[in-house]
Write a protein that binds this DNA or RNA. Structure first.
Lengths: 343, 343
DNA sequence: CTGTTAGCGCATTCAG
DNA sequence: CTGAATGCGCTAACAG
């Protein structure tokens, strides 16, 4: 059953030549609508689908888009992938998934991809510990690459990322509009570019509001929960006038920790202190108080990245300007922020 | 740079013929070790990798293994994929990922895969709402398929799954050994095969211990949290002698809900009531009391499934007996279970 | 507009 | 053991 038909069979069945069939397949306008319809009909009836391998070989393009991900455990990977898949599935391309299971960087993957012509383009979800150079090298060799840049790393590669600066600014504007003037930041690892961007956004807004930066309120908290707890306690051991009335945490789990520690200190959220997170993870809306936070557009990022590779593949000549798309983030106001308490 | 070399170039550079190079590539023993080494050396030096498309066309095998997943949001998908990737990366195959983004079933994917010869084999992570027939059909047409059967669905397809029966039995044995005789089950959706299997395992153990089944302790709780809370309360409105001393929840989040509701009812875990979950999600070890639960071997499931397709691809003739591999689960004893309280 | 003729890069006979 | 000849299924000029 379902014996595989070749283009030749279709040609015979339709009473035309192979190339006519090929032209129909490639939607060439150079074929008579009637013949075209007829050929399509034959194809459908016999359930013909062109051979993937043959098409790839002949065209010099495999119709495969590689996607390198650092792993699937990261909670937003699902969204990114969804965005990518949504775009790709409407094309003739398929996604080849490469998961970094080994520590040794991208290993032989990249080399293999390039020289074997495995994929027509590459989507790379930036990982903390992977250097970008090999990718840039690949790109120079003609492989369209788009970086899904969740880390805000600067590079000459085309990339899509979230507008972390705007995120920080939005938080600042929201808090300032509520009357807050002493805003602390639990920054996580401050050497990460995205953290710096957010802080810059926040500072700029504060500056514009006439609020001078206070280093004692900008905390490099790293990734360790205990550090955060200690820092939060430290904040409220400051002289009363120097204590913050709002805390901006670099991601939602950190915000939860902050809130929990505030509660332990006998402070109420948002009555005594307002708290803002980042990322809008599922739990943010379920927790109490529901968390005010910034939503990153991961689905859109995936989709946009896919569109970018696709277009780079379609027009390889056009020396694509390295586009660094920054997608807008969204402030989600919930219950963890409120007006500044009366002094 | 890195102009793509063909087998012909390598032949020329090595001073042999194309077919010799080909034989070397395919590790044929019919080539002189010296020439072989020489050719390999040339390939390495010039960074030659055979063209993916050409190899695929010529061999009639794309070297691609498709993986259909219902989505990446499901938390265990990462583990399954990791297991698959671990196995696949040591072979010449790559993974093509298909995500069901549309509701309409597998859509055209399956048809396309078969007739275009896109993939050499298929790994399908079972989804709740997808029928298996199309897959069986594909398999009949010669496409090796392995079902990663997280739902315990019966089918003639080769599949790997977790031993849910053993899981239920292990829970039973653990609780019985602690002296419990009145064990309630918060079953989730009882029409799901895996739920039934677990219940069967539990019942069999209870039966062997001389404990008669009690329908009032077997609760079809569906997926809704409120239902579970109500049922838990109901359990402790039973006459004192008929109340359970232990509760088996069909998954960890449900167990958390159960524990929370017990606390609200003024009952302590495990002093008054023991609670067991299923799946061993990350939170299970972080929560208090740390949850006793059953770990499912998702990584191993992925790996095993990958091995199965690979072998089916390698030996297509051998009318593979439809293997239904059931991988062992593991009881993780933590703090939520304890000796039955003294009457 | 349609049919003819060459390859694409490799695997696989088949002689030598 | 090695080299020359075919073909995989399709696309892409090129004639007709």
């Amino acid at each position: 059953m379902a014996e595989k038909l070749t283009i030749r069979d279709v040609a015979r069945l339709a009473g035309v030549s192979k190339s006519t069939v090929s032209l129909v397949l490639n939607e060439s306008p150079k074929v008579d609508p009637a013949t075209r319809r007829h050929v399509l009909e034959v194809m459908r009836r016999h359930n013909y689908v062109p051979s993937f391998a043959a098409t790839a070989l002949s065209r010099g393009n495999t119709g495969l888009i590689g996607m390198i991900v650092p792993g699937l455990t990261w909670r937003f990977m699902a969204d990114i992938n969804y965005g990518v898949a949504k775009v790709i599935e409407d094309t003739k391309y398929e996604i080849v998934l490469f998961t970094n299971t080994k520590d040794g960087g991208y290993g032989g993957i990249l080399e293999r991809i390039l020289t074997s012509g495995l994929t027509a383009g590459l989507l790379v979800v930036a990982a903390y510990d992977q250097p970008l150079e090999p990718l840039i090298e690949l790109q120079r060799n003609g492989l369209p690459i788009v970086l899904i840049n969740t880390l805000g790393r600067a590079s000459e590669l085309p990339s899509v990322g979230a507008d972390n600066y705007a995120g920080g600014a939005a938080v600042g504007e929201h808090l300032v509009s509520l009357g807050h003037r002493r805003i602390a930041s639990v920054l996580g690892p401050t050497d990460h570019p995205y953290v710096q961007e957010r802080l810059r956004g926040l500072r700029d807004v504060l500056h514009a509001a006439g609020i001078a930066p206070d280093p004692s309120l900008e905390l490099d908290s790293g990734f360790v929960e205990e550090t955060i707890r200690g820092q939060v306690r430290g904040l409220f051991e400051l002289p009363p006038g120097r204590r913050p009335t709002a805390i901006f945490a670099y991601h939602d789990p950190a915000a939860f920790t902050v809130i929990d520690e505030l509660h332990r200190c006998g402070l109420k959220v948002p009555e005594d202190v307002s708290v803002v997170g980042f990322n809008d993870i599922d739990a943010a809306s379920h927790v109490r108080p529901a968390l005010t936070t910034i939503r990153q557009p991961f689905v859109e990022m995936g989709g946009r990245a896919a569109e970018l590779v696709l277009s780079a593949i379609a027009e390889p000549d056009e020396e694509q300007p390295a586009r660094q798309a920054l997608l807008p983030v969204e402030l989600i106001v919930r219950d963890s922020t409120g007006a500044v308490p009366a002094a």
